[in-house]
Design a protein around this nucleic acid. Structure first.
Lengths: 204, 204
DNA sequence: GTCTATATCGTGATAGAC
DNA sequence: GTCTATCACGATATAGAC
């Protein structure tokens, strides 16, 4: 769920003409991420992804076999949740909300990560299978680990309320795009999100 | 956006055999709500709705003309937002979070309302048009009205953070269905949601 | 490797018989 | 009013030429 299985280790030019040669795979994956992020799994068509990548639609099947497999390949999670959880739990307990908010907001500022998360979010809303994937990831990778490190009652419920706040922020800011929230800089949101997270996790 | 345009005022039997006679319209709308709620606009098919309602697919077009119009008919918002906002803003300012949480949780407990909101949420995640509808509704019906009644700095941002918490709670509880949040009774969530809302709206 | 052409399917919508 | 039959379209996926 973490490693990237790319072929060419050397980072070659990523934009420009595509002279029938190599590293189209990376280009296809980027185009796929953008399409899946913008439209969700179902509305994103293989043809449109191929068009955006500047290649033929049949190539996508040649590389990835099916639309499902391309979706999974485009979504490889770019961070190790275990490390993140450890880094968030160590330090002043009164600043855990700030660490969570800082990490989350920084994550969503990264364009390619944002695309992956948006694709996941949009698709989970419409697909029971992807929703189940997300549910499993949340509970085994996040909830159980964070809940163990908190010394409060009902830790699972608290962690899930934090996740719900984060999910909803993503929905309102990046999917619904309601103003002024959508255009507010991350630094302005950080203390507000941090306070909400801290309240959920450690308040009375 | 509020009134219901049903024909037969007499509430006849709503389940049972369908002997080719009347009030199929209501049955179709209920089936449509369930399908749109479960799958979102795009994945819900007219044929599946017709099958669930026990009628022919052509009848749906005969009644509603198009899938869009059926979707809109199935979504008629069941409450008057202006009244809700007024009721929430009157009273002890320190209990506004509790009033918001109580109203929201009660709303989602109502099965037919839940279906409408789920259909809206699922579809907004995948459709830019529906997302724009939701954005417009939020800002003109909710944000502007509530923000005027608060005596705090950055009232719009605060209200939108509250909406994001509510959106995310719906996502986590009803779409992702992560436990224990999904099965927690509303009474257990009420104080937790109320505290978060209150913090967003009135904290330092 | 890359493309053209096509098979197969499910969709929304319509026409028209009864 | 309700059904059968069908149209037009766009999708994924595949076969096969170059």
């Amino acid at each position: 769920m973490t490693a990237d299985a790319d072929d060419q280790p050397a980072p070659r030019k990523k934009t420009g003409r595509r002279p029938g040669s190599a590293d189209t795979r990376r280009t296809v994956l980027e185009a796929a991420r953008a399409e899946f992020a913008a439209r969700g799994y179902q509305k994103a068509s293989m043809r449109a992804i191929a068009r955006a990548a500047g290649v033929d639609a049949a190539l996508l099947h040649h590389y990835f076999g099916s639309k499902d497999r391309l979706f999974l390949a485009a979504l490889e999670f770019p961070v190790d949740p275990q490390l993140v959880v450890e880094r968030i739990l160590t330090g002043d307990p009164d600043a855990v909300g700030e660490r969570v908010a800082g990490f989350v907001l920084a994550l969503w500022e990264e364009p390619t990560v944002r695309d992956r998360l948006l694709a996941l979010l949009r698709t989970a809303a419409a697909s029971e299978e992807v929703a189940a994937l997300m549910r499993g990831f949340m509970v085994t990778e996040l909830v159980s680990r964070v809940a163990d490190g908190l010394g409060v009652p009902q830790p699972e419920l608290r962690v899930e309320l934090v996740m719900s706040q984060i999910l909803g922020l993503a929905m309102a800011r990046y999917v619904i795009r309601v103003e002024p929230l959508a255009s507010a800089p991350a630094e302005e949101l950080l203390p507000l999100l941090a306070r909400a997270v801290q309240t959920h996790l450690t308040a009375g």
